[in-house]
């Protein structure tokens, strides 16, 4: 009998920041396993360590002690170049403030990960166009961020996160800068991505948003306080998102 290994596995991960003479213990031994295709919301008050956990899962930072296995590979000892490669190939990021390059068209923003993956111009263009179509922006590929609404900008950011076919999409407060209606629309996109098999991990402090995830991990004082599974609420796709995930 074979069991599928978890996609993400953290074992007794700690993280200590040295702030002058003071040591700040951001994570005090976190063990967490996330299977492929799960949707997980990480919650917690500010200072609970959820952002640090996110940075470590996202290969932006390395744990002080403990092990982190990403797709079965130990990544806690990798150097900056190797971590960059992991971020490029396996992970996709969505940020609260979108973090799109200004004065740069939507399609060029979406092409960015492929640029560092070494894809050719035509392939980059085609894949970016497909990703933008998938988030319902197929008709706005040459728009610049300042010509788009917050919801549209966040969808461009999601297209950028999924263009390189990552295994995991990490979203840090993805609805924090959006009104509640737009926020639900964005959550609908995440649910559709999850349905297509992509693992989604999002950090949020809003319980309303966490309800759309199938699993909620609550952090407190650098430790996992609770880890519950739930029946996720289905998010209503925006009427304009008919093209997303091929749904009617």
């Amino acid at each position: 009998m074979s069991t599928t290994p978890p996609l993400l596995a953290l074992e007794e991960v700690t993280k200590v920041y040295h702030m002058g003479d003071v040591d700040v213990h951001a994570l005090r031994g976190v063990s967490l396993e996330i299977m492929e295709g799960e949707s997980v919301a990480i919650m917690g008050a500010s200072g609970s360590g959820k952002s640090t956990l996110m940075n470590i899962i996202g290969c932006l930072d390395r744990p002080t002690t403990g092990r982190y296995l990403l797709a079965g590979e130990e990544v806690s000892m990798l150097d900056r170049n190797e971590l960059a490669e992991k971020r490029n190939r396996t992970l996709g990021f969505v940020f609260q403030n979108f973090n799109l390059l200004s004065r740069t068209s939507a399609i060029e923003n979406v092409e960015l990960p492929l640029l560092y993956a070494g894809a050719h111009t035509r392939e980059r263009h085609e894949r970016a166009r497909v990703a933008l179509t998938r988030v319902g922006l197929g008709d706005r590929i040459h728009h610049h961020p300042n010509q788009m609404s917050g919801g549209q900008q966040q969808r461009v950011a999601i297209a950028r996160a999924l263009v390189a076919n990552p295994k995991v999409i990490l979203a840090d407060e993805p609805t924090g800068n959006l009104d509640s209606v737009t926020g639900v629309e964005v959550m609908a996109i995440f649910q559709q991505l999850r349905d297509s098999g992509i693992t989604v991990v999002l950090v949020t402090h809003e319980p309303d948003i966490a309800r759309y995830a199938a699993r909620v991990v609550v952090m407190k004082d650098g430790k996992v306080q609770s880890d519950k599974r739930q029946e996720p609420l289905r998010a209503e796709a925006a009427p304009s998102d008919a093209a997303v995930g091929g749904e009617a």
Binding site: G58, L60, R80, N81, A84, E85, R87, N88, R89, F93, N99, L100, L101, L112, P113, Y116, A117, R160, A164
Partner: peptide, 14 residues
């Protein structure tokens, strides 16, 4: 911030 974004999506220091 642009540099941060580029790094997040996989740009290596070089």
């Amino acid at each position: 911030r642009e540099i941060g974004v580029r790094m997040a999506v996989g740009a290596k220091p070089r």
